[in-house]
């Protein structure tokens, strides 16, 4: 790890102030992507601003048809939250599928979303659950937030404070793990809302998380796995690596989508 200056603000305002003053900053949330990257000397911020002591970034709240989760809530906290399990069980289940138990005890929703790793799980949930990303400056619709791998709408120094999810009537997430890393090789989040069905895919796309509008259209007419027969994603838009080439990923998107719909329907 390269040397850095460490900051431990206790409010979002203080954090934003530090970010405004200091050069070459990174925010530290759960650290489960950033710290390994820094250990391998692939990242070397001069200033590390730890968001871990900021109380206002915590908490889970349900209000009407939204569930709002503080950016520093850990995956395990979301997975075990009574509010989340009650309102959006698929989201709690998704959180339980992230990483391993130790990762879930440290990794945070805000960190995951801000990083926008192309094989992370939360971005798919955000798109499928029509989430709003709330920062210290503004509110950003999930559809506008994710802008390609490791790229988001966040400005320099902007801090995610909360993520607000729309409660769907039915939803499920299915994940096919990369056998080695256990990240999503393909993850499909399917959610049925009054406004229509959303299908979001992580892990597979060469440009990061994406929605499958053909599947959404098919499922809006008939929310059943059979409706997806013959609906495919383009191989040319899939990622390819030693674990899965584009054809296999495209195929898995179909399999995982059907299984997600089955699970959502089974839940009722």
């Amino acid at each position: 790890m390269y040397a850095f200056e460490y900051h431990r603000p206790t409010s979002v305002k203080e954090a934003a102030g530090l970010a405004g003053k200091a050069e070459d900053i990174k925010f530290l949330a759960g650290g489960h992507t950033l710290l390994p990257t820094m250990k391998l000397r692939l990242a070397g911020p001069a200033n590390l601003i730890d968001l871990g002591q900021i109380a206002e970034l915590r908490g889970i709240e349900r209000s009407g048809d939204t569930v709002t989760i503080g950016a520093m809530m850990k995956h395990a906290e979301v997975a075990n939250s009574a509010e989340v399990k009650e309102a959006i069980p698929a989201l709690a289940e998704m959180a339980e599928l992230i990483g391993d138990p130790h990762v879930r005890n440290r990794g945070t929703i805000g960190g995951s979303i801000a990083n926008n790793d192309p094989s992370a799980d939360y971005p798919a949930a955000c798109l499928a659950l029509n989430a709003t990303i709330i920062t210290n400056q503004r509110k950003i619709a999930a559809d506008d937030f994710f802008q390609g791998i490791f790229t988001t709408a966040l400005e320099e120094g902007e801090i995610i404070t909360q993520v607000s999810f729309k409660v769907p009537s039915q939803a499920a997430y299915t994940k096919f793990r990369n056998p080695a890393s256990r990240y999503a090789l393909v993850g499909v989040f399917v959610a049925k809302h009054a406004s229509g069905v959303r299908v979001a895919v992580t892990g597979a796309g060469s440009s990061g998380v994406f929605r499958v509008t053909d599947m959404e259209r098919a499922l809006s007419g008939n929310f059943a796995a059979e409706a997806l027969e013959g609906v495919t994603v383009a191989e040319s838009e899939m990622n390819s690596d030693i674990h899965a080439d584009a054809a296999y990923r495209a195929h898995l998107v179909g399999v995982m989508a059907r299984r997600a719909v089955q699970a959502a329907v089974a839940r009722g």
Binding site: Y6, G31, H32, L35, K39, A76, H102, N105, S181
Partner: peptide, 29 residues
């Protein structure tokens, strides 16, 4: 390991299992 996977470094932090190789000492303040 150096990629937060093997778990040889697991300790309990406030009663929860964490990978101490992926936690800064200052974070454990």
């Amino acid at each position: 390991c150096d990629t937060s996977q093997c778990g040889a470094c697991v300790v309990h932090l406030n009663g929860q299992a964490v990978k101490s190789c992926t936690t800064l000492a200052v974070q454990a303040n």
